[in-house]
């Protein structure tokens, strides 16, 4: 039986919050939220065993609508709060939801070091290439040459790929999807949550109000169509040359590797220390 939107609505949304939610019509955040809920529903975890942490921004509104243990924290610090929760209660399923500016600009340090430390966390990063909530300033993932309120004559800096940054920083599971690929997205989120180790899912999303409008990319439907046309699966991308891949987004699992987890290693250290009673 497929997971219906009705079940998700009744089970996981906070009914004392005002719906429809605050996001603009056609915003990808709602699609990501639904995918996350479908993944959690399929995993059959109790609502009490899930912790959602988010930073500031449009994506930061997500946990306020969801009936889990939720944290709406300061800008860029979703992962630090999530790290704290995980260290205190290692049995909980901790998910940090961040935007692109939140994860890679303000919380950039936290992001790379959480990946290096390899805690058993899941990070969902919604990449819409701009700071949408504050009025359309450029973010670290705004492409070269594009227009925003702080780069009116074209952006002069280069963007970086969040997923590839996570691979280099040492995350054990890295995947990428776009909001057009909703079913792939919830499969990837489920895989990431089941993964033991730091798991990153980058979701390419649309901000047609701040980014699309200024760069003449059209509305939500046009942006989703462009995601459909410009994305390519990992297995297909391997066969193509770098020139052919230019302008394309690879989607799917980029890295899946087994590595020692920080919380378990810490447990071992404590056992070792208690055996020797603190003497080295």
């Amino acid at each position: 039986m497929a997971v219906t939107a009705q079940k998700i609505r009744h089970e996981y949304l906070r009914h004392n919050k005002k719906f429809p939610h605050v996001w603009c019509p056609g915003c990808g955040n709602g699609i990501v939220m639904a995918a996350l809920l479908r993944a959690i529903y399929r995993m059959e975890i109790s609502k009490d065993d899930v912790v959602l942490a988010s930073g500031i921004g449009c994506s930061g509104r997500m946990p306020t609508y969801l009936d889990f243990n939720t944290l709406h924290t300061t800008h860029g610090r979703a992962l630090t709060f999530a790290t704290g929760v995980k260290l205190a209660k290692p049995d909980l399923n901790v998910v940090a939801i961040m935007g692109d500016g939140d994860a890679t600009a303000i919380g950039g340090n936290h992001f790379i070091h959480a990946a290096r430390r390899n805690l058993n966390l899941t990070a969902i990063i919604i990449n819409n290439s701009i700071y949408g909530m504050t009025g359309g300033q450029y973010s670290p993932t705004t492409p070269f040459g594009s227009t925003s309120t702080t780069s009116v004559y074209g952006h002069i800096e280069h963007d970086f790929s969040i997923a590839e940054l996570a691979v280099t920083a040492g995350a054990s599971f890295v995947a990428r999807a776009t909001v057009y690929h909703g079913e792939l997205m919830d499969r990837l989120i489920e895989q990431a949550m089941r993964k033991r180790g730091f798991a990153v899912v980058e979701v390419i999303s649309n901000c047609h109000v701040q980014y699309g409008r200024r760069n003449k990319l059209g509305g939500a439907v046009d942006m989703l169509t462009s995601f459909k046309e410009n994305s390519i699966t990992v297995s297909k991308a391997e066969k193509l040359s770098p020139e052919e891949l230019e302008g394309k987004t690879t989607i799917g699992v980029l890295t899946d590797r087994e590595m020692p987890i920080s919380t378990e290693e810490y447990k071992k250290v404590r056992e070792r220390a208690s055996k020797t009673k603190g003497k080295i």
Binding site: A5, R9, G28, G182
Partner: peptide
């Protein structure tokens, strides 16, 4: 196919 249900950002569609 449930595409509309999965991609509705506002949880406003149910296919049954």
């Amino acid at each position: 196919c449930r595409f509309c249900e999965i991609h509705c950002p506002d949880f406003a569609i149910t296919v049954s």
